[in-house]
Design a protein around this nucleic acid. Structure first.
Ligand SMILES: NC(=O)c1ccc[n+]([C@@H]2O[C@H](COP(=O)([O-])OP(=O)(O)OC[C@H]3O[C@@H](n4cnc5c(N)ncnc54)[C@H](O)[C@@H]3O)[C@@H](O)[C@H]2O)c1
Ligand SMILES: NC(=O)c1ccc[n+]([C@@H]2O[C@H](COP(=O)([O-])OP(=O)(O)OC[C@H]3O[C@@H](n4cnc5c(N)ncnc54)[C@H](O)[C@@H]3O)[C@@H](O)[C@H]2O)c1
Lengths: 227, 227
DNA sequence: TGCACATTGTGATTACCTTCACGAAGCCTG
DNA sequence: CAGGCTTCGTGAAGGTAATCACAATGTGCA
């Protein structure tokens, strides 16, 4: 039972979504082939990924949908509420706040931080906005473990330092600055401008293969961000 | 002179930004070590990436900043204006429109498409909004080669088909649906929810190493994304 | 001029991830 | 209950990308 890699974790969340759809349609069992087709990967890849969960299907019946869903949940999703804070309520910050609000029971954006005093103390999509100067204090108080950085590039390192000092262990960084953080803190970078440039490049090149990002795909979903 | 990979292209755009900063500061030459430090990669990686450009530095002087900038530009950036269209002017669509407007001379978002009639014909950040039904027509007329998909998940495949039929060769996809496109069309997926889940996971795991994303990076970016 | 040094360019190596391929195992059919 | 199919789990193989390591090279200095 190998350790799950960055990409495996991403795919597992994808299988989870696919499985939820299948369950909603009344399916009780699913073959690796089916999951593979829906997640656009190979069947072998699906089986390998599921291997790290320690979950087993049966030949002739495949995987049990409900059981696999629960297994993925207990492996990749937080068991109890994990709290998130966001710095920078601008274009991207707002989009994320709006999108994530109320969507995940165990992953909640509880606070936002701004430099612009006009936004202080307002409730934005149910999330209180504080001065960035109070970030450390609030993060500790609320028990936040994940931070999103959506501030201008030049402010990103400062915010990251504040986050790390306050005990945050994972950062989703939209700024185009590679952050310097101590070992043990996970950073996932999403550089939208880089993705645009890449798409433009490969559109000209007219490649045969699709890629990940997302990140990473990586290239897709992000195929790929980086760090 | 090997073919540039997905990740190499991403890093080259990053070096380009770093080099522009150096030039602005009056630096005329730069060593691979310096670029590496600023882009948070290894020096060997920088040299490998530059190798695909066919550009050469000199020992003892390193790379010539201006020359390398021009070389990267001619390799990864469009020589003449490349046009982009965006489907879905919601949270993400708006953020992108606002951010990219007027930022890149040779990469311009020229049109947007919506299903919501309230937005038709309005000018949003200098970009005309059309009905999605007219997408094929407008894309062909304007010579658009890159499409951004920022519509709800269920609409993504339909929009992708429309894009592809109209001749678009590269797609930046924010929907959480793996798109089915013919070979030769490049897709980069950015799944923000997946990135969030990953950050939350690795924050709990408290890993020692930072990762790319992604697209993926990618990942990252973006990390990694996928396809 | 010639030597000592730092850096480049790149073959070789390593690490990681994906795919292949096949033994084992459950299910259905007759 | 046995035989045939199909699928799972996984060791081995294959690919791709990152890193290492070193010969080649140009520089500045003595
Ligand atoms: N929007 C996009 O499409 C896009 C694309 C590529 C990259 N990015 C990157 O994403 C980041 C955010 O982009 P955006 O478009 O949302 O920017 P934005 O300017 O709309 O928002 C930034 C927000 O951060 C706030 N802020 C500034 N300094 C701060 C600080 N020290 N602490 C807390 N808040 C602070 C500002 O008041 C503002 O509201 C930038 O780094 C940008 O380069 C954005
Ligand atoms: N906003 C986020 O933070 C976030 C996070 C994760 C994933 N996503 C994904 O990104 C995509 C867009 O998200 P969003 O938050 O911007 O959504 P949104 O609902 O804010 O915007 C979607 C827009 O698309 C328009 N639309 C609907 N059908 C259309 C069609 N057929 N053609 C053209 N336009 C159409 C709608 O009118 C709306 O304006 C979704 O697939 C979502 O799953 C968004």
């Amino acid at each position: 039972m190998a350790r799950a890699s960055y990409r495996t974790i991403g795919r597992l969340t994808h299988y989870w979504r696919v499985l939820r759809d299948l369950e909603a349609k009344g399916q009780t069992h699913a073959y690796s082939h089916l999951l593979a087709a829906k997640a656009r990967v190979t069947a072998a890849q699906v089986r390998r990924d599921i291997m790290v969960l320690g979950y087993s299907g049966t030949p002739a019946r495949g995987y049990e949908v409900r059981g696999l869903i629960e297994c993925i949940e207990s492996y990749v999703f937080p068991a109890s509420e994990q709290r998130v804070a966001i710095a920078g309520v601008g274009n991207i910050g707002l989009a994320l706040l709006k999108f994530f609000t109320g969507r995940r029971p165990n992953l909640r954006i509880v606070s936002s931080f701004e430099a612009n005093p006009e936004k202080f103390d307002r409730l934005i999509y149910g999330c209180r906005c504080h001065s960035i100067d109070r970030a450390g204090e609030v993060i500790r108080q609320e028990g936040v473990s994940v931070g999103i950085i959506a501030v201008p590039d030049g402010e990103a390192q400062y915010v990251a330092d504040t986050f790390v000092d306050a005990g945050i262990r994972g950062i989703l960084n939209f700024a185009r600055t590679p952050l310097r953080v101590p070992a043990g803190v996970y950073v996932e970078n999403i550089d939208l401008a880089m993705s645009m440039d890449r798409v433009a490049f490969f559109a000209r090149r007219s490649l045969k293969k699709e890629h990940a990002a997302s990140p990473a795909k990586a290239p897709s979903a992000n195929k790929e961000s980086n760090s």
